[in-house]
Simulated assay, not measured.
Amino acid sequence: MKKLSFNLLVDGVPYMVKAEPFSFNDELRYNVSFNGSETFIFAWDEDTLRYAPIGEVATELSMALEQEIASRLYEVTPSRE
């Protein structure tokens, strides 16, 4: 998969999101940054059935932004079956 970039408008704030897919233990993950931020790793979460940020920095994202990014990643990811 290629690097992705997309625009989001969340709570009236524009975000330019960049996501780069990579494989980790045969699992597709994404390095995600927005508006020049640090990089967040999004991985598939079996409990919530969506992509979610992992690690300590995950708490720095607003829930609304996290959900919008997760939704967009799900749309562009090949079938999980």
Rank of each mutant, 00 (worst) to 15 (best):
K2Y: 14
L4S: 08
L4W: 08
L8A: 10
L9R: 07
L9S: 05
L9D: 00
V10K: 04
D11K: 02
G12W: 04
V13F: 10
P14S: 03
Y15D: 04
M16N: 12
V17K: 06
V17Y: 07
A19I: 01
E20Q: 09
S23D: 15
N25I: 06
D26Y: 15
E27D: 15
E27W: 11
Y30C: 01
V32Y: 02
V32Q: 01
S33M: 07
N35H: 01
N35T: 03
S37M: 04
S37V: 03
E38I: 05
T39F: 06
T39H: 06
I41E: 04
F42T: 02
A43V: 09
W44D: 03
W44H: 11
W44Q: 07
D45P: 00
E46F: 13
D47P: 04
R50N: 12
Y51E: 02
I54E: 10
G55L: 08
G55Y: 10
G55F: 09
G55D: 07
E56S: 13
T59P: 00
L61K: 10
L61V: 08
S62R: 02
M63E: 12
A64E: 09
A64G: 05
L65H: 11
Q67W: 05
Q67F: 04
L73W: 03
L73M: 03
E75M: 14
T77H: 12
T77L: 11
S79V: 13
S79G: 12
R80K: 12
R80V: 08
E81S: 15
